[in-house]
Design a binder for these strands. Sequence first.
DNA 1: GTCTATAGAATGATAGAC
DNA 2: GTCTATCATTCTATAGAC
Lengths: 219, 219
Amino acid sequence: MDDQLMSRAAASKKRTRIQAENEEKILDAALEVFSTFGFRGATVDQIAAQAGMSKPNLLYYFRRKQDIYTAVLTRTLDMWLTPFGEMDPDGDPEGEITAYVRAKLAQSRDHPQESRLFLGEVMQGAPLLSAVLATDLRDIVEEKAAVIARWIADGRLAPVDPVHLVFMIWAMTQHYADFDTQIRAVLGKGVSDPAVFATANDTVLGVLMTGILPRRPVP
Amino acid sequence: MDDQLMSRAAASKKRTRIQAENEEKILDAALEVFSTFGFRGATVDQIAAQAGMSKPNLLYYFRRKQDIYTAVLTRTLDMWLTPFGEMDPDGDPEGEITAYVRAKLAQSRDHPQESRLFLGEVMQGAPLLSAVLATDLRDIVEEKAAVIARWIADGRLAPVDPVHLVFMIWAMTQHYADFDTQIRAVLGKGVSDPAVFATANDTVLGVLMTGILPRRPVP
DNA sequence: GTCTATAGAATGATAGAC
DNA sequence: GTCTATCATTCTATAGAC
C-alpha cells in the first residue's frame, strides 16, 4: 500500500502515531491541571506548557478547552468505576468488601489526580456529569446496595444502610487522594508512602469490618 | 457627640454600620463563589453580582481578589475547627466521639460551602493555608490523637491508629458536604433532608462505634 | 460610598506562513 | 503538524465624576 493512501486512511480512520502520542500527552497534562484548578481555573496555556507544546498546536488537536475537559473526564470515567463493578454478589461479604476497599485505596494512591478531577466536577455541580451521575452511577449504586442488602438479609452482615455504607467506603478511601495535601501536612507523608498506605488500609478495614460483620451470638 | 466626629471615629476605628454590612455581604457572596469554582475559577464580577453590588464598589472594600479570598478563609477557619477542640479528654470516649461525629455532620449540613472552600484550598496544594496546616492543624490533630491513644491504653477503645481514625471521621462526615451533588444524584436528596441526616448519622456512628469500642471479653 | 469609564494584562481561539 | 502573529473577549484593578 502506498504511503499516501496509508496516511490518508490513518488520518481519517485510525489516527497517526504522532497524533495518538500528542493526544495522550495533552490528556495527561489536562488531567494534572484540571484536577488542581478545576475547569474554570485551568488555562489552555498552562495545559500546553505542561504538555510541552504551544497553545495553537494543542488547539489543533482539541479545538476548544471544553473538548479537552470532556475528553479527559470520559477517558477517566470507566477506569474509575471499574473496581465497584467487580464486587461479586456470590462471593463472601468479608472478602469482597475487603478487596474493594483495598482497590479503592490503591486507586487513591496510584491515581489521585483522577479522584480530584471528579471531585472538582462534582463540586461545581457536575455540569457535565450530572446526567451520568443520576443514571449510570445511581443504577450501579442501587445494584450494589441490593447485593449488600441481600448479604444483610442472609445474616452475613450486620444491619446497615447499604447506600450510606457505600458512601462511607468512598469517603474513607478517596479522602487519601482528595486531601493529600492536608494529610502530608499532618503526617509528613501521603498514601504514596507504603507505611501510610498499610496503616490506612488496616485502620479503615479494621474499623469497618468490626463494624459491619455480624456480631457473634452470645453463647 | 456630633455626627462628624462619630463617623470619623467609626471609620478609623470601628467601621460604620454600612461598611460592616457590605463586608459581610461580600464575604457571604465570596464564600458561595469560591467554594464552587475555587480561587482561580472565581471572578470578581461573579462575586459582586452575587453580593448585589458593582465590581468597583466591591473593590472599594477589598482592593484585590486575593484579599477577599484571604478574608473569607480566615473568617471560616476558627468556626471550622471548633468542634474538634471541644472533645473532652476527661469525658467518656463513646460520648465524646458520638458528639463530635454528630457536630461534624451538622457542619456538613449547615455549612457545606465552608467545607468545600477548604477542600478547594487543599486541592490546590493549600497555597494560603499550608503553613497553618503544618503547624496549627498538625498540633491539634496530635493533641487529640494523644487523647485517643490514652483512651486506648486505658482499654476504653479498641486499638486503632488515632490519626487515621481522625481522618476517617473527617472523611465520612465532610463527604456529605463535599459530594452533595453526587449524593443528591443517587438519593434524590442531600444531608439537608432530615431523614438523610438521620440515616447518615446512624450509619456512620453505628459502624464506627461498633468498630472502635472495646470488644467485650468472652465470659 | 457608589458609579461610569477605562487602562492593562491574561485568556480562548483563529489566520496564515512554513 | 507546528509555528508566529494576532484578534476578541474577559478579567483584575484603577481613575475620577458625583
